[in-house]
Amino acid sequence: MYDNPLMKRDAVTKEVKISARGCQVFYGDTHAIKDVDVDIEDKTVTAFIGPSGCGKSTFLRCLNRMNDTIDICRVEGTITLDGEDIYDPKVDPVQLRAKVGMVFQKPNPFPKSIYDNVAYGPKIHGMARTRAELDEIVERALRRGALWDEVKDRLDAPGTGLSGGQQQRLCIARAVATEPEVLLMDEPCSALDPIATAQVEELIDELREQYSVVIVTHSMQQAARVSQKTAFFHLGNLVEFGETGQIFTNPHDPRTESYITGRIG
């Protein structure tokens, strides 16, 4: 039926992890996100694509309430994680962020040692009772971040001394060390060279086995390579959301088609 290999991807519907309904975001008077409905599935990589300023990063930051740190930002509508409203006053954003980890556009390791960078999250959440347990968590996270072999002999070296790609993988390891259920990635490869990008993409694919991953990207090739679901944002609207293969080969909306063929954006 489909002759594009993209379409042969496993597209079995899985359990919905995060669900947004009627989500609106305002920065002061600016209406940044307009009425977005989206369901993000568990153990799936969901890509958000769209031109700059279309609101994809803003929406991503709504999913772990990182927008709370911006004073003028206001969120309306409901976003649920496992059926619970994350904007409910009873929800502690700090606990939420432990469950919904985040990796940022620019690698931002803390000016601490590699070990302390990874151990930071487990420490503040009291995940390890003994030093040995902590060592184990750090090693597991670094292995999952595909960084262990490169840094195992210099865990005490500063994290800021690593190369850009290594730093970003360190940040990913730092995020997975707290055992989140969802991992949000805001253009994680935009500051990396092609080789580091390939390593991170491979890593994202492995992470899918355990987490729900949401990735914002400017590269349509990257979205096509790593994701199963793709959402196209334009001017604050969610234009189209569907199977990655379908979005890239047979978009329903003319705006999506214009964007992926390079006519707009």
Partner: peptide, 8 residues
């Protein structure tokens, strides 16, 4: 951001 993103 990094620290808040880890739930600090």
């Amino acid at each position: 951001d990094g620290a808040y993103g880890l739930g600090a």
